[in-house]
């Protein structure tokens, strides 16, 4: 989180803050409030409820987030952009099970077989909680990342359905890869339904803890990280992980820690 370096510590600061509020609004108390935060302030009322227009704005934001969660991943669309992909499924057979059983989303479906490659890197594109984020950002980000990894042998790209982050451990281990990068749709917020996260795990194998991963979050140009920014960071993390032979909190100075609940 970034924030202002200084918060008010004395009465004068608060007066200053509220003065600025008043001036910013040009005397209209509603504009005063709206100019100060992107929280949904000064919505007005219809009796003791929200006015129709404000209510519909909220519903539109919630609908976008809901649709982002429940839209199925379009694998053909990814193939068009990225070429041949191996499709795998987690042990969660459908969306409802996936949402209730994160443990199943971390395991491969029974009978999944993957070729052993002994590659340096496996890349897994996972639907996660926002297939929409994958549709909008995954192909461009994979392309940007691979451009930055000359000299790395890369296993065939894998697309994973009903997948949590830790499914990448099983995929990476089966492929015999030294590292796995998982691109996954993040839990949609009301104002950000298309945010993609990237998780890097060195020496992937089932049972890895979240503390053994590094994360680059909020890839969603133009509002969040750009593809180039995210790819630069992930490539640097991969280089550092290869030097160290490990990922996670040991690399924490170079990458942000995992957000709570990301697994």
């Amino acid at each position: 989180m970034t924030g202002p370096d200084r918060l008010p510590r004395a009465e004068g600061d608060v007066v200053d803050a509220t003065d600025r509020l008043s001036r910013a609004g040009g005397g209209d108390p509603w504009a005063v409030l709206r100019s100060a935060t992107r929280a949904r302030v000064a919505l007005g009322r219809a009796g003791d409820a929200l006015p129709t227009a404000r209510e519909l704005e909220f519903r539109a934001a919630h609908a976008a987030a809901r649709d982002a969660v429940h839209q199925p991943l379009d694998v053909d669309r990814l193939r068009t952009a990225l070429g041949e992909l191996i499709e795998v499924h987690s042990a969660a057979p459908d969306r409802a099970t996936y949402l209730q059983r994160p443990d199943l989303g971390r395991q491969l479906a029974q009978g999944t077989s993957l070729p052993r490659t002994d590659a340096d890197l496996a890349v897994v594109i996972a639907d996660g909680l926002s297939p929409r984020a994958v549709h909008e950002h995954a192909a461009d980000l994979v392309t940007a990342l691979l451009e930055r990894l000359p000299g790395w042998s890369v296993a065939p790209l894998v697309v994973a359905i009903q997948a949590r982050v830790a499914l990448g451990d099983a995929v990476g281990a089966a492929l015999g890869a030294r590292a796995v990068v998982v691109l996954i749709g993040e839990r949609p917020g009301l104002s950000s339904a298309d945010s993609l996260g990237v998780y890097l795990t060195w020496d992937p194998r089932p049972g890895r803890a979240d503390s053994e991963r590094n994360c680059v979050s909020n890839v969603r140009p133009p509002h969040g990280l750009s593809y180039a920014q995210a790819a630069d960071t992930v490539a640097a993390l991969l280089g550092a992980a290869r030097e160290l032979g490990a990922s996670g909190v040991v690399l924490k100075d170079e990458g942000p820690a995992l957000p709570a609940g990301a697994g």
């Binding site: 509220t18 409030l33 100060a36 929280a39």
Partner: peptide
């Protein structure tokens, strides 16, 4: 999101 004093005060 950033504990901004103006934003907090407005809410």
């Amino acid at each position: 999101p950033t504990d901004d004093p103006l934003g907090v005060t407005a809410s």
